[in-house]
Design a protein around this nucleic acid. Structure first.
Lengths: 211, 211, 211, 211
DNA sequence: CATGAATGAGCGTTCATTCAT
DNA sequence: CATGAATGAACGCTCATTCAT
């Protein structure tokens, strides 16, 4: 039984096995939902001989799900950060963040579906895995909005609340994407970015579009 | 031996019991998620002596969940319709719809949490209970936007896409509400309504606010 | 609760209800088998409002089944006895018995199917309801055979054993009838009677046929 | 996680456990009937710690019952075939078949009782497990009778119908055997074989006896 | 390291039976 | 007399987890 899973004592094989299982778990949760994603189903998709092998590599189901969440967050950061880092003005950063998020959701639907299933299906998902990164993301977004107001680029509004709304409108977009596979993502993104801009700018000018 | 549950032949006691069980089911699903909301848990919360009693009153779990969904939708309609019906201009209707929806989400968090849990946890939830009302709601919203454009009240935009975005931003607001119990709902609503208005109006004038 | 079901204190309505329930039970057991013939199913077929009503009229399931068995045996006796009583020689009696039994099985398949289901499905069916009438029937048949031997009509054989075989060959015929709905009963009966005759007569003469 | 129960990939232990469970199932079904032969009862008789273990080794109850039926048929074939294969004339084959069948029934009463219970208790027993072998057996028997007629060994009669009757008289014998534990099997067999012979031969000569 | 057998709790559901009305 | 609501045990089955090999 693995008692110190966070340490670096993990064998090379060990790491590979954990990755393999994590990937299969994402696939399984996305497909069947958290409730029906049993070790047996995950093992089947991972090509493992027995559900017991998962228990061998992960202390319990929660540890596996932790790993799944971490993996998904890491992938998301890898995709979105480069896009926002390249932007110079606050407006450009906002556009990059919104458009980049949706692009990530679109290109990683299974990951995001799994994430949503865990968030809704796991009893303590929120406090254990979501609250911290969410508020961190909200902080970053608030900072961008405040900066935009400081430079006079954005009009006056309560930055935390608007940051929350922008963050939430991405949540809404994700739900839409997962529920409407044939959504016209390009048009959706264009209008959503326009909406964000008209919300933060004094006038309603739409200057550019990164979609 | 309930064989004709849809008919109006239901006894008074029967109706009361079904209501009691439905209410307990909402509470349970909201708290534990769809997957862990077993008959045993629901019975416990309803003060019933046995899970078997639920099976006595509902043909199977799906029938119970159907009733739960129907109950929640009915409650929502009761709350929101009066607010939108009172509005005369398209803009006022849009404001009433957005503010009314959030007010309902706020005052019925358990109901909405249960609804989300069912949507995510039940294998055929979408096709069985959500797709139809969702697209109906989208149709209604699109109609309002189109009407606003016809009267010149709204600027030019693809009405279906914007309707979708408005609908989704309410989904996002719901997720926020469920995840942030101490949210300042009044401010959130005010800014969200403002955002919607700046999105649909030619200028960014904010004329009134129903929050 | 009925505590003295055998007495004559039974109301007229009571008797009618018991008959109605018994008939429905026969139908149900024949259709679903003893194991699946629940009070709920029987009540449905009898047009009763509740399974509880059966418990009200019968002390328990065993008492109902007792009644069912008694009813079926009574019906059988009513049909077969007249046929054998009319026969004068031992050979004619034997033919009447065999042909009459099969005719009864044929015309009362549901009854006989129910009887078989009970015999096989009920834990103590044999000792409680079948052993006594079976050995009585065997006695009667043995008597006929012995009489036939006394008069020189039949050849020499161990009468009890042959009686048993004749009785069993009817059991086999019943199984066949129940499992082969489109059996040519007439031909089957003719050959079976012929077989019985060739078995008991010194020569193999086939004198007549009552099929 | 047994997903491919028909393949030969079964472990040694697996095979042993399945045999053990199958044997316990035969015993249980014979004793309690199909309807009352629950996994709990079977597990108790097999000395297993939990009914869940049966579900581990068999996909569902039907698969277990299939195995039980297959096992019983295989055992029967093993016992009876050698006896009939040794016979040369049609008459000898018929005698060997009848006497051999009864000998098998006699020495494997629990097996046969279980088989009868399944046939009567399982909703689709007939079509799934019995119809095919039954009609195959009938075909074989018909062929023997026809051959006997071709060589002039047997008298003229409708071979299919008589084959059916012979087959049914064995069914009747089985029922007798199961219901009368202290039956004098030897005498019963002798008379039954005699009866069969007098039925098929032109004269009533009884040439030999294999009982 | 990996396997597969085993465990026991829990699932939704059906059942015969009881009992207040 | 009849009803329908209620009960609690049992059903077949799945689950995460354990452990000897």
């Amino acid at each position: 039984m693995r008692t110190d899973p966070g340490s670096s004592e993990l064998t090379f094989t060990e790491v590979a096995r954990r990755r393999q299982i994590t990937a299969a778990a994402i696939e399984t949760v996305a497909e069947l939902g958290y409730g029906k994603a049993s070790f047996a189903q995950i093992a089947k998709r991972a090509g493992l001989s027995s559900p017991g092998l998962i228990s061998y590599h992960f202390a319990n189901k929660d540890e596996l799900i932790s790993q799944v969440v971490a993996e998904i967050y890491a992938t998301g950061a890898e995709v979105i950060h480069p896009r926002t880092d390249g932007a110079e003005t606050a407006g450009a950063q906002l556009r990059a963040y919104v458009a980049g998020s949706i692009a990530f959701y679109d290109s990683h639907r299974s990951h995001m579906r799994a994430l949503m299933q865990i968030l809704n299906g796991h009893p303590q998902a929120r406090e254990r895995w979501f609250d911290r990164p969410n508020s961190a993301e909200l902080d970053g977004l608030t900072e961008v909005l405040t900066e935009g107001q400081r430079t006079g680029e954005f009009r006056d509004f309560p930055p935390r609340t608007v940051a929350t709304i922008v963050r939430d409108l991405l949540s809404g977009a994700l739900l839409r994407l997962l529920g409407t596979p044939d959504l016209d993502v390009q048009e959706y993104t264009r209008e959503l970015v326009a909406l964000c801009q008209s919300a933060v700018h004094g006038g309603c000018a739409v200057e550019g579009n990164t979609a």
